[in-house]
Amino acid sequence: MKILDWSFVLLLSLGILAFLFSLLYLYVFCAIGKQAKLLKKKRIKNKKKRKKVFRTIKKLNWQKKKKLRQVFICLLCCSVSTGTAFYLRYYQATNLGARDSEAVAQGYYLINKIEEQLDADVNEEDTSRVQKNIYELSAKLSSFGTTTADGALSKQGQILLNRFYVNMKELGLNLSNHSSAVLESEELYTNYKEDIKKTRNNQKKVFDYFKLNESSFEKSK
């Protein structure tokens, strides 16, 4: 389990424990109140005994106030712990973890490099070198076939991210199979430019959903 997962479990457990203690203190508070009421109803003629009962009632009232404070403290701890726990869960669901962040950054870099190679103005001598570069970059892109979104992310976030991973895998596989012909065929070139555009559209949806700053990826290229 990740640190955030452990933190969620720990905070939620503390919240539940605090709530149970608040119920216990509330029960004791009610029991003390009932005991104090019974003593108040007693008619005691003996002055000495009456003073003793009065002191007991006073002590019980002090204990009631103490238990009531403990109830509020436990409820406050419960609210803070559970609130923080669910905020952590929300944070996990709407923010990329280290593995997915690295995968998105790598995909962004590879797509840019592939497009640079496709659009490069090359002569016949450089063609084989560019084709080799396209093949190597495409092979790396196709490795996203084994990548899946973190299960802690929201359902919508997982759908968008997995769709982006599949797009990159398919683009990488198709392009690596035709890396030697893509520079020589206008039709293939146009088709792959459309595939890249489609992949970039899904990439943008991922960036928008997770509020990623594209300029930070450009700087890290």
Rank of each mutant, 00 (worst) to 15 (best):
M1N: 10
K2I: 08
I3R: 12
L4Y: 10
W6K: 14
W6G: 11
F8H: 09
F8Y: 15
L10D: 09
L11R: 00
L11Q: 01
L12E: 13
L12P: 02
L14P: 04
G15C: 02
G15R: 02
I16T: 07
L17M: 12
A18F: 08
L20G: 10
F21L: 15
L24P: 02
L26V: 02
G33N: 03
A36G: 02
A36W: 03
K37Q: 13
L38N: 15
K41E: 15
K41D: 15
K42G: 09
K42H: 09
R43S: 15
K45Q: 12
N46I: 06
K47A: 15
K51Q: 14
K52T: 09
T56M: 14
I57D: 01
I57Q: 01
K59C: 07
L60A: 09
N61D: 14
Q63G: 06
L68S: 10
L68W: 08
R69L: 14
Q70M: 13
L75H: 05
L76F: 13
C78P: 08
T82P: 05
T82G: 07
G83E: 03
A85D: 04
L88K: 05
Y90F: 13
Y90M: 10
Y91H: 12
Q92D: 12
Q92C: 06
T94A: 13
T94N: 15
N95S: 07
A98G: 07
D100Q: 01
S101Y: 07
S101Q: 11
A103P: 01
Q106T: 12
Y108F: 08
Y108T: 03
L110Y: 03
Q117C: 08
Q117Y: 03
D119C: 00
D121I: 00
V122Y: 00
N123R: 00
E124T: 08
D126H: 01
N133L: 04
E136K: 08
A139D: 15
K140A: 10
S143W: 06
G145E: 04
G145P: 01
T148D: 11
T148F: 11
D150M: 04
D150Y: 05
A152S: 15
L153F: 03
S154G: 10
S154L: 06
S154W: 04
K155C: 05
Q156K: 13
G157I: 00
G157C: 04
L160E: 08
L160N: 05
L161N: 04
N162D: 09
R163E: 14
Y165W: 01
V166G: 07
N167Y: 07
K169G: 04
L173T: 11
N174D: 11
L175A: 02
H178E: 12
H178R: 13
S179L: 01
S180Y: 07
A181S: 14
V182Y: 00
V182I: 08
E184M: 07
E184V: 07
E184P: 04
S185P: 01
S185Q: 04
S185G: 02
E186M: 03
E187D: 14
E187Q: 12
L188W: 02
T190P: 05
T190Y: 11
T190D: 15
N191G: 05
K193H: 08
D195E: 14
Q203P: 02
K204V: 06
K205Y: 06
V206C: 03
L212F: 03
E214N: 09
E214R: 13
S215M: 11
S216R: 09
S216N: 11
F217I: 05
K219W: 06
K219P: 01
S220I: 09
S220Y: 10
S220E: 13
